[in-house]
């Protein structure tokens, strides 16, 4: 397993002073079901995420991980049950949806940067148009976060001129510029080369250290062990097992989990 080379957590000690989980509920999913046509993708999902939690979602391909986190910011519509984000109930009301989307940052597997805008414009677009922040202030914020993800010198380039890892860090910075209270990651490193995986994971660890509420779909088990406070295992559209990372990796309870872990860690 390439875990050792791709796990920056082993090279640095994680500062846990601000990684505190509060009692305040950030996301509450109750009895949520989703179908694609007649295909039952998500089955009776119940999940409560408290502020400050760092949750890693894993599971075999096609198990509905992406669909689950995409439902949280309404990129996908669910048909049954309720999703409440930061106290706002996700309904068909476009106003609610836009509000939730502007509170919840999302990072995609394929970055989804806007190729016709410079890095800086990518980062200032939403603050200017959604938050109505003056351009100058938005640019300052953008530079602050670009510095944080360690690529301020690329600000005036276009996404196509950056490496994959740099693009993904820009994507993270772009989300952060909206000052989200929750971050969703959908396999942020699985389109990247090992070296770049490290720089992206580093950025994510840094975020976790600052106490960001995060849900990450990822197969970076080193990251899960070090940073997550809870690991969720999904299979066939259901949450099969969830536990603290120690217990999850060392003493998985269900057979599906054991099989999955042996496959992913075994070779």
């Amino acid at each position: 397993m390439a875990e050792a080379t791709t796990n920056p957590a082993e090279e640095r000690t994680i500062d846990r002073s601000q990684m505190t989980v509060s009692d305040e509920v950030a996301i509450a999913i109750r009895g949520m079901n989703k179908w694609y046509g007649t295909f039952h993708v998500l089955r009776d999902i119940n999940l409560t995420v408290n502020r400050g939690e760092r949750i890693v979602v894993c599971g075999p391909s096609g198990s509905g991980k992406s669909t689950l986190i995409r439902c949280i910011n309404a990129l996908e519509e669910h048909q049954q049950g309720s999703i409440t984000v930061d106290g706002t109930l996700l309904s068909n009301d476009l106003k609610n949806i836009d509000k939730i989307r502007s509170e919840v940052g999302m990072v995609f597997q394929h970055f989804n940067l806007f190729p016709h805008l410079s890095i800086l414009e990518n980062c200032t677009l939403a603050p200017i148009w959604v938050r109505k922040i003056p351009r100058k202030e938005a640019e300052e914020t953008a530079m602050y976060f670009l510095e944080k993800v360690k690529i301020p010198e690329q600000a005036l380039k276009y996404p196509g001129q950056l490496s994959g890892g740099q693009q993904q860090r820009v994507a993270i910075a772009r989300s952060l510029c909206m000052r989200p209270r929750i971050m969703l990651f959908d396999e942020p490193t699985s389109a990247l080369d090992p070296e770049m995986i490290k720089e992206v994971l580093d950025t994510m660890i840094q975020l976790a250290e600052e106490g960001m509420t995060m849900i990450c779909v990822t197969h970076e088990m080193g990251f899960a062990r070090q940073v997550a406070n809870r690991v969720i295992f999904m299979d066939q559209g259901q949450v099969v097992e969830q536990n603290e990372p120690e217990a999850f990796f060392n003493a998985p309870r269900s057979d599906r989990t054991k099989l999955f872990l042996s496959q992913i860690l075994g070779h």
Binding site: N73, L75, L94, D98, K99, R101, S102, V104, G105, M106, F108, H110, F111, N112, L113, F114, L125, A126, W129, V130, R174, S175, M178
Partner: peptide, 16 residues
């Protein structure tokens, strides 16, 4: 499709 999703996920409305 990622372009539409990227825009949506930032909270831009349809016309924006």
């Amino acid at each position: 499709r990622g372009q539409y999703e990227g825009a949506d996920s930032l909270g831009l409305d349809y016309w924006q």
